[in-house]
Design a protein around this nucleic acid. Structure first.
Length: 222
DNA sequence: CGATTTTGACCTGCGC
DNA sequence: GCGCAGGTCAAAATCG
């Protein structure tokens, strides 16, 4: 599942997920190894944990602003988008996926059930640089070489006090011109550098920042 | 001088 | 139980 931001933003392109070759990490169970994902948005598989992994990224093409990109403040699990979405559709899909991840997925394996669910989203973008300015301030806390990839993975944590959001950044092992950024968690604050408009909806309790829904800090599980 | 990065060690989960 | 791999910690180094 991939959202590709190509010649027209939020146009999806097919992408074959670079699944791990069964290294025992247990992450390669989602979908077939070669096709596009076809699990409908929000249709969680009842007998599987949320099948998120690095294949669930949004693909960004050059010129779509990798140096000034603000990730959606809502994070999600599971396959998200398929081909042919318009920008409003994608935005809606992102939000719906977040809602689904918050309440619909019912993993049955004990490991998946006992593991605290962390909201994550990954972006795959073509970029010379690995550190994109997403408006938040990050502090690097680790670097690790990963199996099946010649490129190290860098670990960052939001440097805002009290915010436990993390992100991982690594280059695509299949195409080093692409950078995969995985966000984990939800910021409990607005961007310190980019705030166009932030307000809290009285009915839902969500924050709306620059037109996007933001979960209230009180709803954070971690 | 405080903040950030680097990097080896340590911890934990999972498969065999 | 053991080994591997991913993730985190923390002290030292570096930077602004």
């Amino acid at each position: 599942m991939v959202a590709a931001l190509g010649s027209h933003p939020f146009d999806m392109a097919s992408y074959n997920p670079p699944h791990g070759q069964g290294s025992g990490s247990g992450s390669a169970e989602s979908g077939s190894a070669s096709g596009n994902y076809s699990i409908p948005l929000g249709d969680a598989q009842p007998d599987q944990p949320p099948p998120f992994d690095l294949s669930d990224y949004i693909l960004m093409e050059p010129g779509v602003g990798p140096t000034n990109f603000i990730p959606p403040p809502i994070l999600m699990q599971g396959p998200l988008m398929q081909g042919g979405m318009s920008a409003p559709q994608m935005e809606s899909a992102v939000f719906q996926a977040a809602q689904n991840s918050a309440g619909v997925n019912i993993p049955t394996s004990t490991a998946a059930m006992e593991r605290p669910r962390t909201e994550r989203i990954a972006f795959r973008m073509q970029s010379e640089i690995e550190i994109v300015d997403d408006g938040y301030k990050w502090r690097k806390y680790g670097k690790k070489s990963v199996k099946d990839s010649p490129n190290p993975r860098n670990y960052y944590r939001c440097s805002t006090e009290g915010c436990s959001v993390k992100k991982r950044v690594e280059r695509d092992k299949d195409d080093p011109s692409y950078v995969i950024t995985t966000y984990e968690g939800v910021h409990n604050h607005v961007s310190p550098t980019v705030v166009y408009d932030a307000r809290q909806d009285a009915a839902s309790g969500r924050y709306y920042v620059a037109g996007m829904a933001h979960m209230p800090p009180s709803s954070l599980g971690n």
